[in-house]
Design a protein around this nucleic acid. Structure first.
Length: 768
DNA sequence: GGTTTGAAACTTTTT
DNA sequence: GTTTCAAACC
């Protein structure tokens, strides 16, 4: 094996693989083959060091990274690789807590709250503490609490750690109340998963011992993004044997806002004094010019571990920079350029990615991609599992699965409308609170609840409905159960009747959830050591999925996403849009109390963006941009200005008038002329496409954007005057068919005289 | 109890 | 410009 390795790896990579004992820090520059080192390291441990796969733990940040690593380990080490524990921090902690959470006072069947759920709870807390919701927003408290949890500070210790100003004391109270509510709901939020696992390890030597003796070789990917809680978790586990290998790049630390502590990687040698440090500086991804640009930007940061990426991939073209008058022109250029690259056969759509600082920027880009008929997909924005219809369906499943998820139950008790109003719900909730039982539990003792009067029978119907589903859940698969719920509640039928574009999208989302359930069932091998049902396992997997994890498939489309989402990915042809001071680096970072630190974080983000490019990199900016309905004028990003001229194709214009985000009336005339000229030139080379001639095509594209599903406007197999049959309304006569552009609008008179208009693709009418 | 309408907030990044 | 939330109305 060693001979093979020597042939495909450089010296430093080899060292990273074979240095298996003791603490090791691998400083892996962007594109230096760190995943390769990690996977080969695992294989090497198994095959050459005869370590039991069972004793190896590899931790990542995203499910996607974990999946890829699993796959590659499997390829290298065969079936024994299956036994290696490869998972994200969160999944790892959940697995541990599912076995032992009872030792710290939780039920092992605790539920996991997402950010939406946390928000709902925090709203209640604010109400309970009688705070002015106008003045104190949930987000404020939740951010503070999240930071505290990432620092392993419990509610009791909050005031001591943060001071004694009135605001701090208020946060401490909110934190305590919030945590008490989670506890009584038997729920944990994302941050709890880590904090509580550390708490468990610290309080229960037996449990810690179990995992210490299991995980004898530990590897952590993206170590620069670990926070204090994650560090404590790793440190506790590694303490027994000391075989800890962390891989990361301090220049790619971009999650400070989420509690990531860059000191974890910078001080690794202090934390683990006999640590071996290995630097991977040869880049296998990008051409030299891209690396030079990346180096020229990142070297402006202080307090970093000095390294210089190099490659033997060749020099490559200069990096392109273009500044436009408006965000729309910028978007038009990017779309046109991608179309051109594709037409000339330089790049496929899938080789292109557009990266930006904020999700809001995606809108303009999306519009241009629609008009230009370029297939694309947006990552991020509203999380798939955060969509209303998905949350509704999942809330049903949660209620069926675990009667203790109050939020889930309250969410769907009146969805669809059952005539159960806010007043009734809060009376039940109050009662449940007083007695100290769960919401659903309270519903089962309706007789005891005061003041619910007429609503009682409605509530009872709901309980019977859920109980019926619970009985069915015993023998139905998850996907079957979802379909059953949809059928019995009429959820989809209701959306079909609505017939709006939005309803259509919602139905597609639900379909995707069903597909997800089906594929989950296929992979599910009953790996529940704790006697959990398949339904529980499904809900858990779904709770820990991020949007980026769904990015896959062989379709040919351009990817649009934030710079944060792009970490770990690579593309032949990359566009960095919105290179403007105030947008990137963000206004908030420039005006922060500690601007140097904040801007360094932004610069690292820029570094991440640049190093995604393999062959070609294009940076763009707009002088004028609409932000929150206001027009803002910006100068070229300071990061672009940090790039030496000889590496850039394109000039950096620096009109004084755009400084400080204000417009001055006296425009530099020379500058103005240049701008006009540039604009004219741009218009000549890339004619602006007319407004989309067929709204139909545009619409279909828009519909297909998120999930790649394709809407076909099929020919209808019935005509005016035909008898047709509808699933719900029965038979009827077709009165008229209108081509509504995106779809056919069919009017039918059903038996009983009901005349209904509906879209053909929903109604699924069949000729009789 | 449900629906409609208008105001207000939102925009940094997410497991 | 879009979405969310509450008050007013049905």
């Amino acid at each position: 094996m060693m001979d093979d390795l020597q042939a495909i790896l450089n010296e430093n990579q080899l060292e990273g693989i074979t240095q298996t004992e003791g603490p090791v820090l691998i400083l892996a520059g962007a594109g230096s083959g760190k995943t390769r080192v990690l996977t080969h390291r695992v294989a090497y441990l198994i095959e050459n060091k005869h370590v039991e796969p069972y004793h190896i733990l590899a931790i990542t940040f995203t499910n996607k990274a974990a999946g890829e690593m699993k796959e590659r380990i499997h390829k290298l080490a065969g079936d024994s690789g299956e036994m290696v524990w490869v998972a994200t921090f969160h999944v790892t902690c959940v697995r541990i807590l599912r076995r032992f959470a009872d030792r710290i006072g939780y039920d092992n069947r605790f539920t996991i709250y997402d950010t939406d759920d946390s928000k709902t709870v925090m709203k209640e807390v604010i109400r309970k503490l009688k705070l002015d919701p106008k003045r104190y927003k949930e987000r404020y408290f939740l951010n503070k609490i999240s930071s505290a949890k990432n620092e392993l500070i419990p509610p009791e210790g909050y005031a001591a750690a943060a001071g004694s100003s009135p605001d701090v004391l208020l946060v401490a109270r909110a934190y305590a109340e919030y945590q008490a509510r989670l506890r009584s709901n038997n729920a944990m939020d994302f941050d709890d998963l880590l904090m509580k696992t550390v708490e468990l390890f610290r309080l229960d030597a037996e449990v810690l011992n179990i995992y210490q003796s299991r995980f004898r070789y530990i590897m952590v990917d993206e170590y620069q993004d670990t926070n204090t809680a994650q560090f404590a978790f790793i440190e506790l586990l590694a303490r027994a044997h000391g075989n800890l290998c962390v891989v990361g790049d301090d220049d790619q630390s971009i999650y400070k806002f989420r509690g990531a502590n860059i000191r974890n990687i910078l001080d690794f040698e202090q934390h683990f004094p006999d640590a071996k440090v290995i630097k991977l500086e040869q880049n296998y991804r990008s051409v030299q010019t891209v690396l030079d640009v990346a180096n020229s930007v990142i070297q402006n940061n202080r307090g970093r571990k000095e390294k210089k990426l190099w490659t033997d991939n060749g020099a490559g073209e200069r990096v392109i920079y273009r500044q436009f008058d408006s965000g729309a022109e910028e978007a038009l250029f990017i779309a046109s350029d991608i179309a051109k690259q594709q037409r000339f056969g330089n790049f496929n759509y899938r080789d292109c990615a557009v990266l930006y600082r904020t999700n809001a920027q995606s809108r303009l880009l999306e519009e241009q991609f629609l008009v230009s008929n370029i297939p694309y997909r947006i990552v991020g924005g509203v999380n798939f599992y955060g969509r209303r219809e998905i949350k509704d369906v999942l809330a049903y499943l949660k209620t069926i699965d675990n009667a203790r998820d109050d939020l889930a139950c309250r969410r769907i008790i009146n969805v669809p409308k059952r005539g159960i109003g806010a007043t009734t719900i809060s009376r039940v909730a109050d009662y449940a609170d007083d007695v100290g039982i769960g919401f659903y539990q309270a519903l089962q003792t309706l007789e005891e609840i005061p003041n619910i009067g007429r609503a009682k029978s409605k509530l009872n119907d709901f309980v019977l409905f859920i109980e019926g589903l619970k009985a069915e859940a015993e023998y139905l698969s998850v996907s079957e159960l979802i379909k059953k719920v949809l059928e019995l509640t009429g959820y989809v039928a209701e959306l079909e009747l609505e017939g709006t574009d939005e309803a259509k999208t919602r139905i597609e989302n639900i379909d995707e959830l069903v597909s997800k359930a089906v594929s989950f069932e296929k992979d599910y091998v009953g790996e529940d050591d704790d006697g959990r049902t398949m339904l529980s396992a499904f809900l858990e997997e779904v709770a820990l999925i991020a949007d980026i994890d769904r990015l896959e498939g062989d379709d040919d489309y351009v990817v649009l996403m934030t710079l944060h989402s792009a970490k770990g990915l690579e593309f032949d042809n990359v566009y960095l849009a919105g290179m403007e001071d105030g947008l990137f680096p963000s206004f908030l970072s420039i005006t922060a109390d500690n601007p140097d630190e904040e801007i360094e974080e932004e610069r690292r983000l820029c570094y991440v963006g640049i190093t995604r490019a393999k062959k070609r990199l294009v940076m763009t900016a707009a002088k004028m941009r609409m932000i929150r309905g206001e027009t803002r004028y910006s100068a070229t990003s300071r990061f672009v200005r940090e790039i030496p001229k000889e590496l850039l194709n394109g000039e950096v214009y620096e009109p004084r008038s755009y400084d400080n985000f204000t417009v001055e009336e006296e425009d530099d005339t020379v500058e103005e002329e240049k701008s006009v000229e540039r604009k004219a030139h741009f218009r000549r080379t890339v004619p602006a496409p007319k407004k989309s001639p067929t709204t139909a095509a545009t619409y279909q594209k828009k519909m297909s954007r998120d999930f790649g599903t394709k809407i076909e406007k099929n020919e209808l197999d019935y005509a005016v005057g035909d008898r047709v049959s509808h699933q719900k309304f029965g038979e009827g006569e077709v009165l008229s068919i209108n081509d509504g552009g995106r779809d056919f609008e069919v009017t039918v008179r059903f038996e009983g005289g009901n005349v209904r208009k509906m879209f053909a693709s929903f109604a699924k009418l069949t000729k009789v």
